[in-house]
Design a protein around this nucleic acid. Structure first.
Length: 216
DNA sequence: TACCAGGAGAAAA
DNA sequence: TTTTCTCATGGT
């Protein structure tokens, strides 16, 4: 990854959209819950599911860890894949309780914490990195479908690059910077939602000058 | 009606 | 090891 190009894309996105102030949730555990529920799902539906959990006073590790799966699935129904995500959410809550809670995990080094997260059922690379960056303030760059799509279109990365290689490339290009990683990923998602879903929309895209697939 | 959304795990090849 | 299938609601 070219450092200058990577920073230039960031400046263009920042100039276009301004500060994003992510993550759109309150508290460490709520960020973790949101990270699981947003898997392949629009955030607006995740908000409904989190609202259900809050209304049921179930937005706590111990409560989710002990809740009957059918009940948990019902609470999170609006986020889709509710049976799958109920198991994933419970697995994460059980792990959190067993490890002594958020406060204890804040004392664990980043590599160890990442390995432990990836060992939890339902937490893959992107979800783990969402949690590390937005819940635990660790300098880990999150790679998602938008990142691949946008940077692939800019020909700065190959779309089939392995997740870990892509993450390392961004982290090496930018240097460890929690605030930058936080804002950059948020801007990528904002841009992805905003104008980069289909090629014709590149006409009004702030990255158009850099984009290899731009419309003539 | 068809497609997509801030993925991940299991099964099949 | 890589590819394909499955999970599911809600908005456009």
């Amino acid at each position: 990854m070219n450092t200058a190009a990577c920073r230039d894309v960031y400046r263009r996105l920042q100039s276009t959209y301004g500060p994003q102030g992510w993550w759109p949730a309150q508290g460490t555990f709520e960020v973790m819950v949101g990270a699981v529920l947003t898997q392949n799902t629009a955030w607006v539906n995740v908000e409904r599911a989190i609202a259900n959990l809050r209304a049921a006073r179930a937005l706590a590790p111990a409560t989710i860890a002990q809740a009957p799966l059918p009940q948990l699935a019902e609470w999170i129904r609006p986020s889709g894949y509710f049976n799958v995500k109920a198991r994933r959410l419970q697995a994460m809550a059980c792990w959190l309780v067993e490890r002594g809670g958020v406060a204890a995990l804040r004392r664990v080094d980043t590599d160890t914490l990442r390995s432990e997260l990836l060992a939890v059922h339902g937490i893959g690379p992107e979800t783990a990195d969402d949690i590390l960056l937005y819940a635990f303030d660790r300098p880990v760059f999150v790679i998602d479908a938008y990142t691949r799509r946008i940077f692939g279109r800019l020909t700065l990365v190959s779309k089939d690059t392995h997740y870990e290689h892509l993450r390392a490339a961004f982290e090496q290009a930018l240097g460890p910077d929690v605030s930058l990683f936080n804002e950059y990923h948020a801007l990528i998602v904002r841009h992805g939602k905003d104008v980069c879903k289909t090629k014709p929309q590149c006409a009004g895209c702030c990255l158009r000058e850099r984009c290899a697939s731009r419309m003539a």
